[in-house]
Nucleic acid binder design. Structure first.
Lengths: 222, 222
DNA sequence: TGAAAAATCACCCGTTCGGGTCATATCGCC
DNA sequence: GGCGATATGACCCGAACGGGTGATTTTTCA
């Protein structure tokens, strides 16, 4: 803990130090070329690399890198679980996923675990270096298609054919209010609220309060 | 509708056409310089610009731009509401927010409304042109700090001191299961589930199913 | 104009939920 | 060894909820 603070302090005091990078990637060739790319560039330093998550988790706190490049498909523990652990050990460290996967689930899980950026493996060397610089200066570098995926995930979907009033009631429900409280807020009787909610349940194909709230929030219906 | 499809078809067939851009921005000077920047660049064309949302909404369907640059602070209807309307009229059109605001709420509201990217106004002219190109090729250009803000919003927070078992029960609750169903899933009695849930309520400071689910999902506790 | 959809309200009935209280077993930690 | 936190379980009670049925009014749209 003491060491940790000193390291952080040193990094802040000497911003012209090279950015130190660790690589976690099971393919030896890719690991070697990433290493070369980073060490060969002005202002970057590859201080360690690992072929699996377990070894990395054990040893990386000695390295204290500024940035980690993380593959997802590793033997044993996945790169995503590894991110979760790493972030507990070193919350100040920026982790960039560098992987072939570009499916929603994997991308979002990585970001939830604490990754600060997400590059697909076809990214050119100079773009990788740019991304490392960018993440270190407070950004979140992503491949273009990943960025769009991330931004699209915010879009409110109105897929289910709820009426305006029903959406209004549902959004009240999502604040955790009781029928009575919703009724008071919308200036209608609580029987009317019940009536709306029964219709909402039918349209959402659910049968309880919690289920409706869960669907509404997960699918961004409100 | 017919016109709309023809326009789309034409755009897809002739990718070398300049990218057509409309600007919605109330400051005349900024509007004029953006116009100049875009028209002065190879491969771009500024086909229209508006000083307020209402006029834009009325007339822009004639312009059918590929990309819209949208300010947020407009006289009358806000840029965010304008995005919502525009997206209904022209779902294929990419909208980039170009504004001074960089507060969470405004940024996320913009993206929920359907914006495909978000640039802060200190963005350099050539970066604006890059962003337009990027959004047109399926990306989601954002200023670096905005990107980090967006990515951070995914992070699972474990701020509230729930025990592992409590988190497990809560995550079941968030799927909309009844106490009985959770009990069966976790192989415990439903009275135990109730007991856990009562403790969860205390820790989350809530007093109902819906409220707990809402907090858990909104604050990403599970 | 006239049918369909949406919004409003009411009542019944059985089930689930929320709050309270209490008890036991286990685990980690000082 | 004992204290606190956690996990497990039970019982009671009243309030809230879910499902069904039915009715009136307003809005919408063809």
């Amino acid at each position: 803990m003491g060491d940790y603070n000193i390291a952080t302090y040193a990094r802040r005091r000497r911003p012209l130090d090279p950015i130190s990078v660790s690589i976690i990637e099971d393919d030896h060739d890719i690991r070697a070329s990433l290493s070369l790319i980073i060490d060969g560039a002005e202002g970057f330093e590859c201080i360690s690399n690992y072929g699996d998550a377990e070894t990395a988790l054990q040893d990386i706190s000695q390295d204290m890198p500024d940035v980690i490049l993380m593959d997802i498909e590793l033997p044993g523990m996945s790169g995503i679980d590894c991110v979760r652990q790493m972030k507990k050990q070193m919350p100040e460290c920026d982790i960039l996923m560098l992987t072939v996967h570009d499916h929603d689930k994997i991308v979002f899980e990585s970001l939830c675990a604490g990754a600060c950026g997400y590059l697909t493996k076809n990214t050119r060397p100079r773009h990788i270096l740019n991304a490392i610089r960018e993440v270190r200066s407070g950004g979140a570098p992503m491949s273009t298609n990943i960025a769009r995926m991330v931004v699209n995930s915010f879009k409110t979907r109105h897929s289910v054919g709820l009426s305006d009033r029903e959406r209004e009631v549902l959004s009240q429900l999502c604040t955790g209010k009781s029928y009575k409280m919703i009724a008071d807020t919308l200036f209608i009787s609580s029987d009317t609220v019940r009536s709306h909610i029964k219709n909402i349940y039918k349209k959402l194909e659910v049968s309880s309060n919690a289920e409706a709230v869960a669907r509404a929030l997960k699918e961004k219906l409100v």
